[in-house]
């Protein structure tokens, strides 16, 4: 196990002391970890099939119908009663389904009512207006949102910390020019850029990430810069310079840990912000490509199908729970780094 210095140990204790935040972290962690295996939870293919004494893994491998005694060379559709019949009777086998028998893009054709259909034993949270299972879409949408926010937060933190560090540490002209650049850059309208861009290219996950990154790195620059401005005059930094340490080593070893306090405190909130931004873009239709699972698209569906309240309610709770958990975690992190509670 990593050897923690006493300050960090105290912080960890402080974090744990905030019960709400601590449990939120666990809950969120479990949800996120589970969603990483969404294919095993919600899928239109069985996890495991036994046919004539042999095991098949439709989740990871494609099988044609002929493998199970069908007639066509096409991909086996395990929801088809004909195939199911073949496996059960002819093959003396069985099928192991995931908990939700729909993937995010599976269209349920045998709905008893026109889509959107209300919750049923088959579609636990109902279907959307294209007959797709809402629960499956929430699970996949959650995964995409969190991954997007995670990558964006990490990337923009790295860029922001580096930019803030350089500005704060060197100060003077570097600082002045960089500050003016940031002022101009932050004046660019992000949303318009995205709208213009989405007419030029089909924005996918990485496109969106790149564009958002161009603007979101500025969040942290100010705090990190202030921290470095202060840090470069600390006596132990001066002592390190007198020892002959190079600039990079001083920045990394002596000042960065101070700046990390501010960074880590901000991170959960930046994370929340990125999440909401992606949802908003999806809601407006400038986000992920059509058909992909996204919470924003679900919100939009809820709005346009007010007669199907399960859409709006699901979207609301999915977002509300996720964001609330993250805020609780953020508060706990903030408490943990609060220097007033760290009297050593």
């Amino acid at each position: 196990m990593m050897r923690l210095n006493p300050i960090n140990r105290r912080r960890l204790d402080n974090f744990r002391a905030n019960k709400r935040g601590y449990w939120s972290l666990w809950l969120f962690g479990v949800l996120f970890f589970a969603s990483l295996f969404a294919e095993l939870i919600a899928n239109d293919r069985p996890l495991l099939v036994q046919y004539q004494g042999e095991l098949y893994w439709p989740v990871v491998q494609d099988y044609s119908e002929t493998r199970f005694g069908g007639e066509f060379e096409t991909l086996a559709d395990f929801k088809d009663p004909y195939i199911q019949d073949l496996i059960h009777n002819q093959g003396q086998g069985w099928i192991l389904w995931p908990a939700v028998r729909y993937s995010f893009d599976t269209i349920n054709y045998d709905l008893s009512v026109p889509a959107p259909s209300p919750p049923s034993t088959d579609n636990w949270l109902g279907t959307d207006d294209q007959g797709r299972d809402v629960l499956a879409r929430v699970i996949y949408g959650f995964r995409v949102s969190v991954l997007f926010a995670l990558v964006l937060t990490l990337a923009s933190s790295v860029v922001g910390v580096v930019a803030g560090a350089v500005q704060g540490y060197y100060g003077g002209k570097v600082d002045l020019l960089f500050q003016r650049f940031i002022e101009i850059w932050s004046g660019l309208p992000v949303l318009f850029l995205l709208i213009i861009l989405s007419s030029l290219v089909q924005p996918n996950f990485w496109w969106l990430l790149g564009i958002m990154l161009l603007f979101s790195w500025m969040n942290l620059v100010d705090v990190v810069r202030a921290e470095f401005l202060r840090g470069r005059n600390l006596e132990y930094v001066r002592a390190a310079r007198a020892l002959g340490l190079g600039n990079r080593l001083i920045m990394f070893r002596h000042i960065l840990p101070n700046a990390m306090v501010a960074t880590l405190t901000f991170m959960p909130f930046i994370f929340n912000g990125s999440l909401v931004t992606l949802t908003a873009l999806d809601f407006l239709g400038f986000g992920l490509p059509p058909g992909s699972a996204s919470l924003g698209e679900l919100v939009a569906q809820g709005k346009s199908n007010l007669h199907a309240p399960w859409l709006g309610i699901t979207a609301f709770f999915a977002l509300a729970i996720m964001l609330t958990l993250l805020i609780f975690i953020g508060e706990a992190v903030r408490d943990a780094f609060d220097s007033r509670k760290l009297k050593l």
């Binding site: 132990y236 002592a239 002596h254």
Partner: peptide, 18 residues
């Protein structure tokens, strides 16, 4: 710098707490 060293006033501030 090896030959030219310094000790500062504040022993609380001049040692990195980490």
């Amino acid at each position: 710098r090896r030959q030219l060293q310094v000790v500062f006033q504040d022993p609380y501030g001049s040692l990195s707490p980490r």
